[in-house]
Design a protein around this nucleic acid. Structure first.
Lengths: 158, 158
DNA sequence: CACATCATCATGCAACTGCATCAATCTTGA
DNA sequence: TCAAGATTGATGCAGTTGCATGATGATGTG
């Protein structure tokens, strides 16, 4: 079977096939619900006196890593975060005394970001507030079966 | 801003029940997948030379409203956008000649935001690029049945 | 080796966001 | 009617993000 012939219709912006109504609804729901639920969870955590959730994401990665240290490059991949965003997030963590930068012995371009004791402590406290908020805004609204189905459907988008 | 109901169980950080593993997975998937998919769609639209998707959201609301004009208060509700965010988004739309502010005859605090011809034109073109990107990044990855199930599960979180 | 290319991380700048607050107007209730 | 309070919208400020680019060190190739 020959390749689909190069189609002039696909060249310009007009080539786009339209999504079905079902797809459109799923798209808008995805945006809206994620925004709402994320907002509620982060608000709860902030109102408990904690920094943004992204701080926690990094601290968890560090806390669970051997020696409490990870290369930024590795964090970028694990957290799907842009390089400049991570660089500045590390700035803030360092500024707050929660992490420190160390020279990487094997690659002198590179770094290790290491969690401090204060970082570990904050991470543990924050995890409680975070978990509570997720339970309140997600766990209590879905059965485990539904949660699995949701994860699975979301996974198909990746 | 509505007060959160006082709940003694929510007072300390320690009271928080932890979410199940299923819930936790659903939460992380929700964040990750939404971020990824939204990023891809918005990138596609931007690379086609269009402004952010939020512009489109407002333009669509305006375009479909009677007389092409809506009160900001109404937009806030429909788009679930914070008041100051919308106020500034309107600034940008006006600045770009896509909308204009008009005095509201029935409430002198209020406004009407009205779409311009240029706004209608952009909205139409943008809708094509937007629809194409959604079809590419969402529609093509889910059957309609799955999309309905996804919408339904997401709806339970709201 | 010498050079071009790539990988890693930082940063200047403009745009955007969140928060608090202000100004103007409307609504309510004694 | 009038004062207290609520609603509507804008804005100053600090913090954050996106984009492009720079600086430095690694890697690969002739």
């Amino acid at each position: 079977m020959p390749e689909r012939p190069a189609c002039i219709l696909l060249k310009g912006p007009l080539m786009a096939r339209k999504p079905s109504a079902e797809t459109a609804t799923a798209w808008t729901q995805l945006l809206r619900v994620q925004q709402q639920v994320f907002g509620r969870v982060e608000q709860d955590v902030k109102k408990a006196g904690f920094p943004p959730l992204s701080w926690h994401d990094v601290l968890v990665e560090l806390a669970h890593a051997p020696h409490g240290a990870v290369r930024p490059v590795e964090l970028e991949k694990r957290l799907a975060m842009p390089q400049y965003g991570l660089s500045r997030l590390i700035d803030r963590l360092v500024e707050a005394g929660l992490a420190e930068r160390r020279q990487c012995p094997v690659d002198r371009r590179g770094l290790y970001v290491a969690i401090t004791d204060a970082g570990r402590e904050l991470q543990k406290k924050m995890a409680l507030a975070y978990a509570g908020a997720v339970e309140r805004h997600v766990g209590s609204k879905l059965s485990d079966i539904e949660a699995v189905r949701l994860s699975h459907l979301l996974g198909r988008l990746n």
